[in-house]
Design a protein around this nucleic acid. Sequence first.
DNA 1: TATTGTTATACTCTATAACTATA
DNA 2: TATAGTTATAGAGTATAACAATA
Lengths: 147, 147
Amino acid sequence: MSDTKLNNLSKDLYNLMLNLHRKIFNHDEMMKNLPIPPSHVKVILYLKHNGDSSISEIAKNLLISKPNMTPIIDKLVSENMVNRYNDPNDRRILRIELTSKAHEFIKKQEEMIKNTLSEKISVLSSEDLEYLGHHVTGVIDILGKIK
Amino acid sequence: MSDTKLNNLSKDLYNLMLNLHRKIFNHDEMMKNLPIPPSHVKVILYLKHNGDSSISEIAKNLLISKPNMTPIIDKLVSENMVNRYNDPNDRRILRIELTSKAHEFIKKQEEMIKNTLSEKISVLSSEDLEYLGHHVTGVIDILGKIK
DNA sequence: TATTGTTATACTCTATAACTATA
DNA sequence: TATAGTTATAGAGTATAACAATA
């Protein structure tokens, strides 16, 4: 693959991110509408996607410094969104798991986000929606091959 | 267009956002690598996209509270990234414009982001890159019809 | 000696109310 | 009276270094 082709594609991907952000998925707007701070959302979504994890794992992957994990997990525990439990193999490690309340929270928020998306694209013609679906699943399929 | 179709498409769009974020464009990671805080980046990019703007306009559209704009603009001025000037028609209004240094900064950052994107997709086969380009421009074209 | 998680602390970012100057 | 921008201030989020417990 030629370098210019790769460069053009990365330019298109950058434009795709900007367009998605501006037209249908404003990250900041979503976060402001949530009842809990962004760092809590990140931790919950991380656990949902990666399963039970140690505090260090979460911190490393979410780029949150370890000391700041303590108050975040404290609050999530007090809100009954996660539980701490000891790792049976290494007594230094605390593992974090989602509660059923957290799973319900995620489900509800995803519904809200999907409703917002539906609204934004509902102005498109039936034909455009057809094409959009085709191209979106096309991109997802290929991204699935990375990593 | 049937509601179920719209729902499926919004689900796909949600998955597209998640996949883009996880596979090739980690928002937090990008921000951490920048030499200036996120709020400054947002203001600069807003001005790049929307042209000279009043402080209230910027605050409203970026969901930053007005009082917090003062120190942000102060710092950007001291870093020689923006200038303040009076609106000729309304003496209450201060308008903000980007300096040439800011334009260069944006150009450099966009280059870095595109290089990162190139690296991430360079593992794909020539054929997959071809398809990816096709679908990405397809999505961009249709998004262009919104708003 | 290295790693896990915590404490302490200072710094930045943010939200709210109250102020001034212009309209 | 309403709006633009500011000041003051308290709260939330973050980064860094130093520490105790465990490996």
